[in-house]
Design a protein around this nucleic acid. Structure first.
Lengths: 322, 322
DNA sequence: AAAAAGGTTGTAATCGCTTACAAAATGGCC
DNA sequence: GGCCATTTTGTAAGCGATTACAACCTTTTT
């Protein structure tokens, strides 16, 4: 493992200069800088983290899930993994630290990425007061944030069903207190509107992003006579529950009911026609914004585009002949 | 933040001595050791990681989930958190590092804790060959391992139902390829046997630890005429699914069916009579064994006792009068 | 041409801890 | 008590980086 001293010697400069290059400090002659960088690359030099930390330079980033949010929601688990990967690639490290009751870490890090933030998250204030760089996943004007295009995705999903000829399209929602669910509902409504199909409140089924609730709600609704040929579930997990319910009701997918999910979670949504949210892209964007935040720029947000993925759970509406 | 120097000064010794106490090195007078430890506690001294690492002492531990295992299983997520906490308390840190396709980390750590290991886990061989200290969660003779008393817990759960007078006791299992599920089934059978109640294969319902499957399997079985007044689900998640199914079938818990879960997961199993598995204790035991492994002792395993928690989902079998 | 100003680089102390080595204390024995 | 062996303890040199400060070049100004 080459050290800063090795680089300095080979480049014919002092360790101080190498350090300055390393930390992108001003006051290094461009030629010197170039030479140093070249040597660093040749040697495959990577600064030792422990030594930097010892001098007060932490490279650890904390990933904080809002307190009270279920920690085993697949989406968050996957996002967590992708964030780890993305931070790693940028030379940043994720250190798991326990958090206090307020959801704040017991050990300070350089910056934070916040998951599952509420509208009035107490953590936000604490971080802003402490001037600690942070990025939120979700829409939060006033800070750095990253969010997928939920409304657009819902619009695309619904439009897809509409274009297949469906007119009775049910929507299985998430909880109204979650912004995500609200945005997806909005996209659904806008698509209906755009195609001149009247919005029918009774076709909106209240879910809670859980598979079991989706199953029960859907089955009950159908048994009570609700009729539809298209179904847009606000998450893959709910789509899976819905699919099971439809199966148990003796309905075939997609012949009897066309089904679209959202998220395209691996394994879970693997067989669904769904809206793909590139979690890796969300993670990379979050890391990029975090670096901007670390560098101290003006806060801003970023929407990540989503994409409809066609698989086997949707088809043209069949015209029943008697 | 107190340093090793502060401790040394207050204890009236040199930093070298404090360091020796810290690293449990021989050659420190018992009285001195005691005095130093006392001062450390009074000051709440925690050695700074970066400085230790700088002198070649990595304190990072990797937590590795077997590849192919769903990363969002509540039990694993919780275990992960408790492990983080327990390691933290021992001065060890968890660094999230991406893993390769085989589930091995891209950056070496001091030791590893393996979750969801299979019978012939390729990671095990790799770690053993590399002489890397590791602990498994689950029973694996030949290495360090920690596992809850699954069989004993299942026995206690079933016995509880038997003592309430139930004789037709169904069991909702996990997949047979998972040791955990097999052990819990065994405990169920042993309890029946101990009480002279014949084991009836048709009362064993095949689940897969998922809530949705539990719901469907249970509902279908009941609708097909299967009768029972007691139900032991091999996990809280399945118990939740079963409870929903029973509710939808118009059955009351516990008046019509007594239900026992397993794990006592927070939130999920909060209202169930269930078998509590102290995940924190499992985590602490794993960390203790990991330290032994780091110190290089003979490998051995450890069973963590579990405990029946009585809540509202079980009651005496009602004798129906017509 | 000397002085001032500014840019670039080197030097060495520092962060908190470990550890080889030296030094001091202790105890046993004659 | 003196000598030696054995514990126990202190000392100080690193580990790999950062950074304040000093020192050295260039330019520009007068």
């Amino acid at each position: 493992m080459p050290t800063i001293g090795d680089v300095a010697r080979l480049a014919g400069v002092s360790t101080g200069t190498v350090s300055r290059v390393l930390n992108q400090r001003a006051g290094v002659h461009p030629q010197t800088r170039e030479r140093v960088i070249e040597v660093m690359e040749r040697l495959g030099y990577v600064p030792m983290r422990a030594a930097r930390e010892l001098t007060g330079h932490s490279d650890t980033v904390g990933i904080l899930l809002a307190p009270g949010v279920r920690r085993y929601i697949p989406y968050f688990v996957l996002l967590f993994e992708h964030l780890t990967e993305a931070l790693w690639r940028e030379g940043l490290r994720v250190e798991e630290t326990p958090t206090d009751a307020a959801g704040l870490p017991l050990k300070p890090a350089r910056g934070y990425i916040l998951l599952g933030a509420h509208d009035h998250d107490p953590r936000l204030e604490a971080l802003q007061n402490a001037q600690t760089p942070h990025v939120l996943i979700g829409v939060y004007p006033g800070t750095y944030w990253v969010a997928p295009d939920d409304e657009g995705g819902a619009y695309a999903a619904t439009r897809h069903l509409l274009e297949l000829g469906h007119r009775e399209i049910a929507h299985l929602t998430g909880q109204p207190q979650h912004q995500v669910g609200r945005e997806r509902l909005l996209g659904y409504r806008k698509a209906l509107e755009a195609y001149g199909v009247p919005f029918q409140p009774h076709l909106v089924l209240d879910g809670d992003f859980s598979t079991l609730t989706a199953y029960r709600v859907l089955r009950k609704a159908w048994e009570q006579g609700l009729c539809f040929t298209g179904l847009f579930a606000a998450s893959d997990e709910m789509a899976v529950g819905a699919a099971a319910a439809l199966e148990d009701l003796g309905l075939r997918i997609p012949q009897d009911v066309s089904l679209v999910g959202f998220d395209d979670l691996p394994e879970i949504g693997a067989t669904l026609t769904t809206v793909r949210q590139d979690i890796g892209q969300v993670a990379r964007a979050a890391v990029r914004l975090l670096k901007e935040s670390l560098a101290g720029g003006g806060p801003h947000g970023m929407r990540i585009p989503v994409q409809l993925v066609l698989r086997g759970t949707t088809s043209l509406r069949e015209v029943r002949t008697a």
